[in-house]
Amino acid sequence: MGIIETRHLTHDYQKIDEDGKTQVSCRAVDDVDLDVSPGQFIAILGHNGSGKSTLAKHLNAILLPTQGTVYVDGLDTRDAEKLDAIRQRAGMVFQNPDNQIIGTVVEEDVAFGPENMGVSPREIEQRVEASLKTVDMWEYRKHSPNRLSGGQKQRVAIAGVVAMEPMCIVLDEPTAMLDPVGRKEVIRAAQKLNREKQVTIILITHYMEEVIEADRVIVMDQGKILMQGTPREIFSRVEELKAHRLDVPQVTMLAHELRKSGLPIPEGILTVEELADAISPLVNHTESKKG
């Protein structure tokens, strides 16, 4: 069974005027079926307003469906009695590193989640240590969060979720406000959790280089799933991505352009190595002809 299943998930935002009447209703997520198996690394792409954050917020019952159903490890998110169980299974990390840290010391912040779950003090200690080590922030355990860099703060936020030992972590643009180094640190932490602890990761991002190692990429547009597949399948559809003004990694774009110019280069090139591998035999071939 999947860790996350949505069936015909639809969500409408309503704008309510001063008299409490609905003025406008806007469909943010439109009939989405999503299945995520345990241990997968899923990346969700899409523009602002494409519905990806709204979708994400359904995965730990911050939002409830207007229509359709969301199951987290088989639990229906509309079942209010299961709310704690759902949030323990699916943790969430948000975009702004300054909005999600509450403790005055790093280790206290990480302990907050398990404390609220009623975990014993000794186990809290163990969990705090393990999760801070996973995100490489153990040496900062006694620091004040407000003096950390953005990437470090985000990793503390991830540790806080990890300490609750969730099966699944949803990261909603965790790197959007970070510099390139901070971005890499956060993505590396998510990949490590996925590989070493088999935590299911759902990563929402605008940065293409962050999705090329995902098991599956989902592209959202106007509340619907526009494309779905492996990174290679998705990035083979350059023209479609461009038509929706989505980014394509520079190396994929260059490969695509060369292909359009007549060079026999396959679509879906994702790394510098792959492109070089595709180009260099062509040169050797022409050289040998000449010789």
């Binding site: 180094v181 990694p249 520079q250 260059l254 352009e257 510098v272 260099s280 040169v283």
Partner: peptide, 29 residues
């Protein structure tokens, strides 16, 4: 903690493999 654009690395790699490409290329075009 910075990096050159990705295409710069492509050019470098091709050069390493013996192609006489322009190492100064910084845009896709």
């Amino acid at each position: 903690g910075l990096a050159a654009p990705q295409v710069t690395y492509v050019m470098r790699e091709l050069k390493n493999r013996g192609m006489d490409v322009d190492l100064c290329a910084t845009t896709i075009d």
